[in-house]
Design a protein around this nucleic acid. Structure first.
Length: 400
DNA sequence: TCTGGGGTCCTAGGACCC
DNA sequence: TCTGGGGTCCTAGGACCC
């Protein structure tokens, strides 16, 4: 069925400044200007209607809200390329961004809209190359290996076809990396951003990958990078030069071996077209830090609402879970989690509220709280759980 | 001027069972 | 009475990603 002779060609496709580009579709007058998307996603922003968008589309540039004078705890979610030129980038605090680029136009996030455009571009992808793996709203992996034409110019021809098809259908641009596996494809998609294509063959590893910083490896974060640097390892080439045993000794059996494989461009993970969720959660950062005693009523309301939201998510998506947990972030930014596994899977807000409440009793509550979250894990599709035997089934009853 | 929200996976210790 | 593994589940924390 599959041709064993074909070399594996895996693409990583990454939409360019996705949220910002979607906003530019409806406010084309902002083209070329520094625009940032962000701020605390309040209810008003989430349900910002098409009416508002439609009206703003007619509005002159001067009428848009600016970053200057922003007060609050939000962070930047995305910035257009002109805004990035000022040093503004995602995950940056809004207050800091306002200092760097006060004239930037500030738009609130509208996830519902981004999801709509996400579905559109992914539909285009699967209509051309069906083996696609979702990696969030704005990126996908695609297996080119068996796609007709997927091997031409190492995948470059198909990559450009996808770019053109997505642009024709949506007006959005993307960047694509094609390589022998997901790990290298992910790095390659950044090479010619925005609106670029990069094709890497196995023999390109030394010239194109080894000069890169270790942090460019998907899976090497700030902690691992700092530790690598402390050992004098800055580039992927330097990482590749370390013996596997040395890496295992310093980074553990699993992570050390993985680091070695990554540096040598080895990665045989398949492109997975479907997967089931493991957990669902809702969390919120308060506008000001709250105290369990002094702000008991307000916290109670928020807590109940989070439980209702998670329950609503589970019901809408058709899942039940049996591990219910909470997450706190204290004013010193330290995080505590507690969870409890119950006998029966549930999607009921009252049950979640009750078990989460018990979790809350097990955690220190002297410090002020910055964030509260509720999580349900150990998920099962509701349809499967319905056919599950009742708890305790099959346990041997005491004889006497 | 402090730093969002929604996820996944891994580790490590303890309980409990065979 | 003492010794020993292996396997699974639960819980807490942490790294990392988009």
């Amino acid at each position: 069925m599959t041709s064993p002779s074909l070399p594996r060609r895996i693409a990583h496709l990454d939409m360019d400044a996705f949220y910002a580009s979607v906003e530019l579709l409806r406010y084309p007058q902002l083209q070329g200007l520094p625009v940032v998307i962000g701020g605390a996603p309040t209810q008003q922003n989430e349900s910002r209607g098409r009416d508002w968008a439609g009206r703003l589309a007619q509005v002159p540039i001067e009428a848009f809200p600016r970053l200057a004078g922003y007060v609050g705890r939000g962070v930047i979610t995305t910035a257009t390329y002109p805004a990035r030129a000022f040093g503004v980038g995602s995950a940056m605090g809004m207050m800091k961004a306002a200092r760097l680029c006060p004239q930037a136009i500030l738009l609130p996030v509208d996830f519902a809209e981004y999801r709509r455009w996400s579905r559109r571009f992914k539909q285009v992808v699967v209509s051309i190359a069906p083996v696609m793996e979702n990696r969030g709203v704005d990126e996908v992996y695609i297996d080119f290996t068996e796609v007709p034409g997927g091997q031409r110019e190492g995948g470059g021809v198909l990559a450009r076809l996808l770019q053109k098809s997505i642009f024709d259908a949506t007006g959005l641009t993307c960047s694509v990396g094609v390589a022998p596996n997901k790990l290298i494809a992910k790095m390659a998609s950044e090479f010619n951003k925005p609106n670029g294509v990069a094709v890497l063959l196995p023999e390109d590893l030394q010239a194109r990958i080894w000069p890169l910083a270790c942090r460019k490896i998907n899976g090497v974060g700030p902690k691992a990078d700092a530790k690598l640097q402390s050992h004098g390892i800055h580039t992927i080439g330097e990482l590749a030069a370390r013996p596997r045993e040395w890496l295992v000794e310093h980074f553990g059996r699993s992570y050390g071996a993985w680091l070695h494989d990554a540096a040598w461009g080895r990665d045989d993970r398949p492109v997975v077209t479907e997967s089931e969720p493991v957990s669902m959660s809702r969390e919120t950062t308060f506008e000001r830090d709250l105290h369990a005693v002094a702000d008991r009523a307000e916290l109670g309301r928020i807590f109940t609402e989070l439980c209702q939201q998670v329950a609503g998510d589970l019901q809408r998506k058709g899942y039940v879970g049996k591990t219910i947990g909470i997450k706190l972030r204290y004013d010193d930014f330290k995080i505590a989690t507690r969870d409890q596994t119950v006998e029966r899977h549930t999607q009921d807000a009252a049950v979640i509220r009750q078990v989460a409440g018990r979790c809350l009793k097990r955690v220190p509550l002297t410090r002020r709280l910055r964030l509260l979250g509720v999580r349900v894990g150990n998920l099962l599709p509701a349809a499967c759980a319905a056919s599950l035997p009742p708890p305790g089934w099959g346990e041997s009853a005491p004889l006497f």
